[in-house]
Design a protein around this nucleic acid. Structure first.
Lengths: 226, 226
DNA sequence: TCCGGACAAAGTGTATACGAAGAACAATTA
DNA sequence: TAATTGTTCTTCGTATACACTTTGTCCGGA
């Protein structure tokens, strides 16, 4: 898996450290590196087929983003999100994504709405095909698109990071819930299209409440505290 | 999280990259490095008396935190917060700090309230002495303490970062406004002590609105867009 | 058997050097 | 004047070296 990954990485012209960071993030989110697992620089360098320097730089950023914890003179370990942080993450998301929905409703152009509708269509289709992986992917894309439409870079980057973490903790459960949540998505996009900020905010909150409830149900089974 | 581990292990050793990062942050916030200024690795390495490696790692984190912008193959420049981002920052702060105030009101112990009151007293005293620098410092301490009392690490770290950026942009103006805002602080702490989440949230919002208005007034004179 | 310390191994932290490639700017040429 | 070519600066990645910490192991003594 290291070689083909490396080939793909090398094809692009992004700095290696960014590619390593992206690969590291997805590896952690996908559970390839489990919480508590030790990440030595040499090992990562070998896994990704690069030298230690890009790995180190990626690790520092991953630490700032909360995916790993770096212990001085000991090295990096994959962070262990405890179930307590679930409540915290959803509390913050509740504030930020409702704001994003409101701003999106106020600022969305016709083209923006069209792109959201296109995602909804694709999602409906994937749901009918029972392609859960694709549904989950479209789910993410939709949320990130709304953040982007909000036009607030701070909001966007912070919420995106939070969103990634939620995906990380509830990777499995999220995919299963995705079909149910699709109806909520339609409500949300309708509200954004209407331009009614209050309505959009309410729709986002409803969606988050449902997601939060589902997350809690699923938390029992997943790799929780530790 | 894993701070307990952290404290025990290599507590006494601060890696150079962390020292460089801290120095870089304060240098930027204090205006020693001005927005748009180019930061070559060699120069920073020389300024801080270290090799390029710690500098590079610090720069990546500073980029993630939004203090510098890194252009591929061109290097780092100090970020240039435009007046548009002022609105954005306050919009996000409005959501997060009100949440922090609510949570603080719900969770604050008697000792927490006492520490806030102590800060208020010191602030009143410093105001009477016209010690603006001290007032600004206490201002920050108070806000960060409230975040800490909220008990939500995500909220705390995100809002803290935002707070630093606001300080950066309105470094000068903030100090002058501080005496006026102190009355609002008293309202806020009163609300937190009462345990009334709604009231605390309202107080926080009032305070932010006033701060936002002051920031805009001051934005004309500062180093603004670009 | 159990304890304690010497010792080695592993891994990070830091510094340095080198080559490749990109970007900016100046110089040269048509 | 305009386009092209070179030069220079700097980043990007690699490689290497070494000090220092942490950790685990092993061995001798009680």
């Amino acid at each position: 898996m290291a070689e083909d990954l490396r080939d793909k990485l090398g094809a692009q012209h992004l700095p290696l450290r960014d590619q390593v960071l992206a690969a590291l993030r997805t590896a952690i989110i996908d559970g390839d590196y489990l919480p508590g697992e030790r990440l030595t620089e040499d090992r990562l360098a070998e896994d990704f087929g690069v030298s230690r320097n890009p790995v180190r730089e990626a690790l520092r950023v991953a630490e700032a983003e909360g995916f790993v914890v770096i212990l001085p003179r000991r090295g990096a370990v994959v962070a262990s999100p405890s179930s307590g942080t679930i409540t915290d993450m959803f509390a913050v998301r509740g504030r930020l994504e409702t704001l994003a929905a409101r701003l999106a409703a106020e600022r969305a152009t016709a083209a923006d709405v069209a792109s959201l509708r296109a995602l909804l269509d694709q999602g409906r289709e994937a749901t009918q095909r029972h392609d859960l992986a694709r549904v989950a992917e479209l789910n993410s894309t939709l949320h990130l698109r709304i953040l982007q439409i909000s036009g607030n870079p701070w909001l966007s980057s912070i919420a995106k990071s939070l969103y990634l973490h939620v995906q990380w903790v509830f990777r499995l459960g999220a995919a299963e819930r995705a079909p149910h949540s699709w109806a909520e998505h339609i409500q949300l996009v309708d509200a954004i299209e209407s331009g009614d900020g209050d309505r959009a905010e309410r729709a986002a909150l409803d969606h988050l409440d449902a997601a939060s409830a589902a997350a809690y149900e699923n938390a029992e089974g997943g790799y929780g505290a530790r």
